[in-house]
Simulated assay, not measured.
Amino acid sequence: MNLDLSRTVSPTESSKASITALNSIVLYGLAFLLAYGVHQLATAAMAHRLGIPLTLHLSHVQFLIPDRQWWRIAVIAVYGVGPFLSLLLAIGAGLLFWFYGRGRKGRLKLFYFWLALHAFNLVLGGLIAGSFTQLGFWYVPRWLFVEGGTAFPIALAVLGGIIAVITGYKAAVAFLQSHDSRTMMLYANRGQLIFTGLLVPWVVGSLLLAALKWPDLTTYEGLLFVTMGLFLLPLSISSRNELFQDTVPTPRKTTIAWAFVGAFLLLALLWRLVFNAGITLS
């Protein structure tokens, strides 16, 4: 994949690339917090409904019962409800993007795009991260098909990885349609768009989110940031080869999305304040 980052760019292109990177980082982070929040709150709500005491932390849900007190239905319900709602959220965000976002100007369509990817990653990436850590979504196939041992969840994780790669590769046009700037959409600037609109938000956004969760960041959640690459790296390659360079007839001017910046900072602050000490439900 040749991003052609050595090409000389004009001050206008450089400014738009920087703004694109900032907006993409913010929307990447905001979408993750929303998707992960839905996942964790659903998990906690199901456990609470089943009478399982728990504590919600910055990066994980701690269940306050010993392993021997779990029963099969509880394991499947508690660890399955989050990925199930995440899948619905991914589908919903994808439909919003396709029918209400891509043909309109503004940054909301880029938010839908990131939300769909993050939510889908909580499902597919959750299978992969769980196979490495034997935590999270891994428990669902493990307890659904006990006779399959650990081989079945691993096979599902491999399948999930393949689906993630295919999804990312096929999402190139959607990624390009999520941007308004005529300058950044030019094929000559495709390398800059991929770098600032995909790779920078993935790396910088993930580091910021990891810092937000520190020192509670779990290996499982850390791996979710890595598995996002199964979507984004094929997407980068496909976008580089995609000749599509159209945008909406009246695109929005490339400026910092202050409303989304404020929303991200506020949500991150609330996340830290609310979950830092842990919330216990008994």
Rank of each mutant, 00 (worst) to 15 (best):
P83M: 02
T8W: 03
L212G: 00
F244G: 12
R72F: 04
W143S: 05
V248Y: 08
W70F: 10
V123Q: 09
P234L: 14
V9K: 15
V9G: 04
Y36N: 05
Q40G: 01
F260D: 08
L232V: 12
L124E: 00
F152E: 08
W202V: 03
G92N: 02
R104P: 00
Y112N: 08
T247G: 14
I128K: 11
T247H: 14
L5S: 02
R142K: 14
P83W: 00
E221L: 09
D180K: 13
I279K: 03
R107N: 15
A35N: 02
P83N: 01
F111M: 10
L193V: 08
A211N: 07
F137P: 03
A17K: 08
R240H: 08
E147T: 04
L110E: 05
L108H: 03
S15A: 10
A42E: 00
L96V: 02
L41W: 01
H118E: 01
Y28C: 06
N189K: 09
F264I: 03
M228K: 12
H48N: 14
I52V: 14
A257N: 14
L265H: 11
V165I: 14
L3F: 06
T280I: 05
T250W: 15
L199A: 04
Y139F: 12
A119V: 01
F275Y: 09
P234N: 12
F231L: 13
T280Y: 00
L159I: 12
L56V: 00
